[in-house]
């Protein structure tokens, strides 16, 4: 998917994450992570975010994640929702998100 606009998904509530995706044309993927789990789960969260972006075919994006104790499933859901919004895609390829 091509990231056309800036878009966010998620909240700042406990157990959730606020994910923002911005265009980064030709600049590859950049990822910024903040939150209380970052010291102990930062690598896991980044890995799951990169995997989600690549499964959606997102090659260029500037992604920031503000987590409040979100589990991987929540990180992935917030990221895929933000990507869908930023790419203007309504019909999500659920198959590739398995």
């Amino acid at each position: 998917m091509i990231i056309e606009n800036e878009a966010s998904a998620g909240t700042a509530e406990s157990g959730d994450a606020r994910v923002t995706v911005r265009p980064n044309k030709g600049g590859g993927l950049s990822l910024e992570l903040r939150g209380p789990s970052a010291t102990r789960y930062g690598e896991d969260i980044k890995a799951v975010a990169i995997a989600t972006l690549s499964s959606l075919g997102v090659l260029d994006a500037d992604v920031s994640i503000e987590e409040k104790g979100a589990l991987d499933a929540t990180i992935r859901a917030r990221l895929s929702a933000a990507v869908g919004r930023a790419a203007g895609v309504v019909d999500i390829p659920w198959e590739v998100l398995a």
Binding site: P36, S37, K68, G69
Partner: peptide, 8 residues
Amino acid sequence: TPLIRGRI
């Protein structure tokens, strides 16, 4: 105690 707090 809850099993998990946030992600911890």
